[in-house]
Amino acid sequence: MAATPHVPREANDMRRLGAVLLDGLLALTAALIAMRATERADLPGMQVFYATAGACFGLSFLNHVVLTRIGGASIGKFAVRTRVVRETDASRPRLPRLFRRWLGGYLFVLVWIIAAFFDMAEGPEDFCGIRLVRFRDLRAAEAGSTPGR
């Protein structure tokens, strides 16, 4: 029978806030660059809007879903030395779960209101079964679960 894996505790709120701010700034920078480029091209207003939104959401998707699947963290999470893991076994989440988490981030207010209405203590992080942990704690947990170390 396999031993239950040790899942590190959640990273503190300051690390989470730092990652959110950096990732948000990155997406907004992409939107600003797209907006400036499309305005200089003298495109109609709706095309400017589509290009701006596409750059913002596209980069956000690549950062939060694709990069997190490949590297275990978004750029902001790398910067604050945290990683994203599954709550059950501390493994790297797969694309469908990461996509739900990314979409849930945009729907955070709606999810929070529903959770409050039904008196649920769980927030959007728990909604997808993903936990943000410190990189150091994750490495320590992995080293402790490996036989012979």
Results as ranks from 00 to 15, higher is better:
122 E>I: 11
34 A>P: 09
92 R>D: 02
129 G>T: 10
82 T>K: 07
2 A>K: 13
19 A>Q: 02
7 V>H: 08
72 G>C: 05
121 A>T: 15
34 A>F: 04
29 T>V: 13
54 G>W: 01
50 Y>M: 08
67 L>D: 00
57 F>E: 05
6 H>P: 00
72 G>I: 06
35 M>K: 07
60 S>W: 06
140 A>F: 00
9 R>M: 08
57 F>Q: 05
103 L>W: 05
77 K>E: 06
115 A>N: 12
105 G>W: 01
14 M>T: 11
7 V>Y: 05
3 A>W: 03
49 F>L: 14
31 A>K: 02
51 A>L: 10
105 G>I: 08
79 A>C: 11
6 H>Q: 13
124 P>H: 15
89 D>S: 15
144 G>P: 00
42 D>T: 07
136 R>N: 09
83 R>C: 06
59 L>E: 04
78 F>T: 03
88 T>Y: 07
112 W>L: 15
16 R>T: 08
30 A>K: 02
12 N>V: 02
91 S>F: 00
42 D>A: 13
141 A>F: 02
88 T>A: 15
98 L>I: 12
54 G>K: 00
127 F>P: 02
60 S>G: 14
110 L>V: 15
4 T>A: 14
80 V>C: 07
106 Y>N: 10
65 V>W: 03
128 C>D: 11
109 V>F: 14
25 L>R: 04
131 R>I: 12
64 H>S: 08
85 V>E: 08
125 E>D: 15
63 N>S: 06
8 P>W: 01
127 F>R: 14
61 F>S: 12
56 C>H: 11
28 L>Q: 08
25 L>E: 05
93 P>C: 11
7 V>D: 11
54 G>H: 02
114 I>W: 13
99 F>C: 14
83 R>N: 04
12 N>E: 03
107 L>Y: 08
139 R>C: 06
85 V>P: 02
33 I>K: 00
53 A>K: 09
66 V>C: 03
19 A>L: 07
51 A>H: 05
141 A>K: 01
39 E>L: 15
109 V>P: 07
108 F>M: 13
56 C>K: 11
83 R>L: 12
7 V>T: 11
24 G>W: 00
64 H>L: 09
21 L>F: 10
69 R>L: 04
142 E>A: 10
53 A>D: 04
95 L>R: 07
24 G>E: 07
77 K>I: 04
127 F>G: 07
93 P>L: 06
11 A>W: 01
17 L>D: 00
107 L>N: 10
92 R>L: 13
67 L>T: 07
34 A>R: 05
148 G>F: 03
46 M>G: 04
58 G>Y: 04
138 L>R: 01
32 L>N: 07
98 L>S: 10
48 V>H: 08
145 S>D: 05
57 F>T: 07
29 T>H: 04
13 D>H: 06
56 C>L: 15
72 G>Q: 03
23 D>Y: 00
73 A>L: 06
14 M>P: 00
70 I>T: 13
66 V>D: 01
5 P>G: 14
146 T>W: 00
33 I>D: 04
34 A>K: 02
79 A>L: 06
126 D>H: 12
128 C>H: 12
137 D>Y: 06
67 L>Y: 03
149 R>L: 07
